[in-house]
C-alpha cells in the first residue's frame, strides 16, 4: 500500500500555467498521476495540453472532485495558495515552493493546524511524494523508483531522496511510498507523521529515514521509533562535516552550539535500534539486508 496518496488520488496543480508548474504537472501526468485541473486566477477557461484551468481551487474542486493539490507558485503567494486549497476542502497539499519567508510559513501552518485539521500539508520546499507505479506528485524523476515495496522512504532532502531511490533500484528493491518532507523551518508534515503512517501500512516492512543537521526532528523521530514502531528502520544523516553556525543551503540545516549535529542525531537513532549508514550507499545496503531477512 501507499501512504497519504494512491492511484485514485485526483490532483490539481496551482500554478499549472507557470513554467515550473507546467513542466512538473505534465511530467506527473505522463507518469500516470491523475492530474485533473490547473488553477490560476484570471486564466479560468483555458487549458494546458488538455488539462482544464480554473480561476479558483473551489471551482476546480467542484468541477473535478479533486482531493489533492500540487502548489507551484512563487514564495510571496504560496501561503495564501495553500490556505485557499485547504479552505476549498482539499485534504492533501504538496508545496514545492522554495524561499517562503519563515514568518509567513509559521503563520500559515498554524492557521492550517487550527482551522483545517483535516488537511495535510507536505512541504513547503519539498520534492513531493511518489508511490511508484501509482502516483507521483512533485518533482521526483519517476523512473528512478521501482514499484511494489517493501521499503518506505521519508527524507528531508530532495536530491538525497533521489539517491536513496536509486540505491534501492540498483538492488532491485521496490518502494511503497517515498515522501520528501522538505528542509524548511516549519514543515507541514514531519518525520513522525510519516513513520506513523508507514507503521500502519502492512506493505511497508522496512523504513528508510534520511535526515540532516539542524533542529531536533531526527531525535524526536528516534524517540517515536523506540516507543511506537515494530517496523525496522535504517537511517542516514547528512552533514557530519558541516561547520557550526553556518547555513548549509537549506534554511533549516544549521548546527547551533552542540545541538543539531549529525553525530547527536546518529547516536539518538542508534540508541533507538535504528541501523545507521555512514553514507547513502551504506544505508541502501543496510535496507537491502533487512529486506533479505524478511520472513517471506
Amino acid at each position: 500500500m501507499s501512504i497519504f496518496v494512491d492511484e485514485h488520488t485526483k490532483v490539481i496543480v496551482q500554478g499549472l500555467t507557470g513554467g515550473q508548474g507546467r513542466f512538473h504537472g505534465l511530467r506527473n501526468r505522463a507518469y500516470g498521476t491523475k492530474v485533473v485541473a490547473g488553477v490560476r486566477a484570471g486564466k479560468g477557461g483555458q487549458n494546458v495540453e488538455g488539462i482544464p484551468v480554473f480561476d479558483s481551487v473551489a471551482e476546480a474542486r467542484a468541477a473535478t472532485g479533486a482531493d489533492a493539490s500540487f502548489v507551484s507558485v512563487p514564495p510571496a503567494s504560496a501561503p495564501a495558495a495553500i490556505l485557499e486549497a485547504a479552505q476549498a476542502g482539499i485534504g492533501f497539499i504538496v508545496c514545492i515552493t522554495e524561499g517562503i519567508p519563515a514568518q509567513d510559513e509559521a503563520r500559515m501552518f498554524n492557521i492550517l493546524r487550527r482551522e483545517h485539521s483535516g488537511t495535510r500539508l507536505l512541504g513547503p520546499n519539498c520534492p513531493g511524494i511518489i508511490s511508484p507505479g501509482k502516483t507521483n506528485i512533485g518533482i521526483t524523476a519517476g523512473e528512478i523508483a521501482l514499484p511494489g515495496g517493501p521499503v518506505g522512504i521519508v527524507s528531508r532532502s530532495g536530491t538525497l531522496t533521489y539517491q536513496a531511490l536509486h540505491e534501492l533500484k540498483q538492488k532491485g528493491i521496490g518502494v511503497t511510498t517515498c515522501v520528501g518532507i522538505g528542509g524548511d523551518p516549519v514543515p507541514g508534515t514531519t518525520f513522525i507523521d510519516c513513520l506513523a503512517a508507514f507503521e500502519a501500512d502492512p506493505e511497508t516492512r522496512v523504513v528508510m529515514l534520511i535526515g540532516e543537521i539542524g533542529g531536533s526532528e531526527e531525535e524526536a523521530a528516534a524517540d517515536f521509533i523506540a516507543r511506537e514502531m515494530a517496523t525496522p528502520v535504517v537511517a542516514y544523516i547528512a552533514g557530519v562535516t558541516a561547520p557550526p553556525g553556518r547555513k548549509m543551503g537549506h534554511a533549516g540545516a544549521i548546527v547551533s552550539g552542540t545541538s543539531g549535529t549529525a553525530q547527536a542525531k546518529m547516536d539518538a537513532l542508534t540508541s533507538a535500534g535504528v541501523k545507521v549508514g555512514q553514507n547513502p550507499t551504506e544505508a541502501g545496503e543496510l535496507a537491502a539486508q533487512l529486506v533479505a531477512a524478511l520472513p517471506y
Binding site: S155, R156, S157, G158, T159, L160, T161, Q163, G183, I210, E212, I213, Y236, A238, G239, V240, T241, A242, P243, R246, K247, M248, G249, H250, A253, A262, Q278, N279, P280
Partner: peptide, 28 residues
C-alpha cells in the same frame, strides 16, 4: 549557495542534502 571549508577537495553538487552528503563522503 557556498560555504568555505578548509580542505583541498572542491565540491559541486545539486541540492543541499546531496552537497552535504558529498562533503561527508569525501571525509569518510
Amino acid at each position: 549557495q557556498y560555504v568555505g571549508l578548509d580542505g583541498d577537495v572542491g565540491i559541486i553538487a545539486n541540492g543541499a542534502g546531496l552537497a552535504m552528503s558529498t562533503c561527508d563522503v569525501v571525509n569518510q
